[in-house]
Design a protein around this nucleic acid. Structure first.
Lengths: 205, 205, 205, 205
DNA sequence: GATGAATGAGACTTCATTCAT
DNA sequence: AATGAATGAAGTCTCATTCAT
């Protein structure tokens, strides 16, 4: 019973944090507000999290985990490596659009906003790369994908996707450009980069 | 002498701001610190900038401008459209690595950290896209680049580059991967995506 | 012509000051606001007034002068000393009610809000006492008013009136008490205190 | 010990506030100074008081309460209604002279300096009037004092006293007039006004 | 576990005043 | 004569964090 309750507060805090993040943005994401949301003293958050960053890290971690799970699933449901890459890309996009704030938070790690992200957590974050990496390897083995260095390729794949979504979410996209078209075009470009290129392929779009 | 001094404080503030940003990161970027740096009252900053965001915007603007100038120059120095794209990509990378904090600040716009970025300033920011866009158009005209939509392609180009540098700067790159190799590989990928693909080309790597 | 303009600015400032005082109260009475009112730099006020207090003093002085003139006039229009006292009291009340902010400002001198009121200006302020004092003397000479010390009596008269208006203007009057009735009653009391008292009364203390 | 300390800061702030008020006057009464006095962060004051006004209100309230207590006591110690009125008047004077700053603060309510004085607190302030009012009623019942409207009379009594002290404390009293004599004279005048007047006098208006 | 009190940093605003031009 | 720039004080608010209970 007490265990339940203990877990509860931590979960409640995380939930409230997500809620605040969603409604107010990171800029206005404060421990006080979170505490207020669940009628708990701000100090109580420190019973479950070392500090604000730690709480944000947890949010990040969970978001990453959710994303990874989604990716894992769509990969398992697609047949060919190329289809898998496409599925990965589109799932990534879907996630970024649906959970914008959380997506953005994931990428806060980078900026000095969130320096202290603990090393151990990076491993979990890296799982996404592995998924991509495996698909690329699978494609390379099957002669469909031209990659001698699947790990590095996973990173470039990932990086390119992130760049695309970053532009989309930052609303820096020219208003004359249709968002979905942009995404489609970009993904096509990115994936094309990994296909074995032959004369036959260049025209098969 | 008088004119000089008048103009000075604003410039001094910007300089100090850049310095603080560089040494302390955005997380610890405070008006007080900036004011302290140049032995000026914090209030004085408000005589030249509406608020903290306004100052940051100015920093962004200047960084963008500098970047754009650099891009413009390298473009003008390269011959072929492909060479120009490459030059653009490498100059972008160079800038991002050299002025990391400023590069990061430019991309703060996106996150809600910096919502209030004024519309008018976006235009200047968009100049980079135009530069790329023009090169792509030029290449398309010359039959070297396969783009019917140079504007959109400019955005995908840009986005992908940003993604790459974002991964690099966030230090999320797997330690087993060499940074420069990663960058080279990624740029090659990205640019390849815009080349006219023929059987001859696929093997010329 | 230049003289005219010079005088103008000073007058304009005073006018604007009065306006601001009226509309915003002393609490929000700021040099900036005054300057803004007449589209002049705040610094310009210092060309005509030593500082904020000096400007306020000027306002006070003018208000006092206006009050004194009014008092002088009503005194000259009344016949008997008693009638004169009454006229003085009612004119004083009328002024306090009509120019509340200015009336209040006159009495700011006292509180440490306005310590530095210059000695020379006190003399002008004292003219009001003289007027009362003269009336009392006149009444004493005529056997109507019991005062051996008209100067002191003038001060008590004045003080009592001020107290009454102070209560009225501070809105501290019980809501069940009618304002005008209170004023009438108080004035009656005050003036009664100066009338010749018979032997019967004077000894019952 | 714990309770003591908890209650302490608020009290300490009030004490420091009173000290600052005393030594520097309302003009220089700043939260920062108060905080400095007791080596406490200025922010801490906001944990106990809504804002500066709230703190001042508290000072006022306590001063009023202290005054009322004094008045209550001297009234209970005097015999006849007339003696009580005199005791009240002299105690009032004593208080005003001894606690000048606090006395002045009490009367800050009026000026727009201190607009936001909360309604509930007025009730406490009104207790002084009740004390006077009761004495007047008692005197009226005993045929010594001529008052059909003791409540209003209490206000006029009060107002007159305040006026007198206001003149005294503002140092506007003519230097040729002895302060104590002035006070004595004024009080005599004021109290005389409430004594039963004979037919001869009452009709000579 | 949980909390209230306190802290110190910081943003932002308004202000009176000074100074150099 | 007039002004813009700068200053320092101050009020107000919000915040992350610490501490003692």
């Amino acid at each position: 019973m007490s265990k339940t309750k203990e877990l509860n507060l931590k979960e409640q805090i995380i939930d409230a944090a997500r809620r605040v993040l969603l409604s107010e943005g990171y800029r206005n994401f404060s421990l006080r507000k979170i505490a207020g949301e669940i009628d708990v003293s701000a100090t109580s958050i420190y019973l479950h999290f070392e500090n604000k960053d730690d709480l944000v890290h947890t949010l990040m971690e969970q978001a990453i985990e959710r994303l990874n799970n989604q990716l894992q699933q769509v990969v398992s449901e697609a047949d060919s490596p190329i289809a898998k890459l496409e599925a990965l890309a589109y799932e990534y996009v879907r996630f970024a659009l649906k959970y914008q704030r959380e997506y953005q938070i994931i990428h806060l790690t980078s900026s000095d906003e969130m320096t202290r992200y603990p090393k151990e957590k990076f491993r979990k974050a890296r799982k996404g790369y592995e998924i991509v990496s495996n698909v690329l390897q699978e494609g390379a083995d099957g002669g469909l994908i031209a990659e001698e260095k699947p790990r590095m390729a996973a990173y470039t794949f990932w990086a390119q996707l992130h760049g695309v979504m970053s532009v989309v979410l930052s609303k820096r996209l020219d208003t004359r450009i249709n968002r979905q078209e942009f995404i489609d075009e970009a993904i096509e470009h990115i994936i094309d980069g990994y296909k074995i290129r032959t004369a036959l392929q260049t025209n098969n779009k």
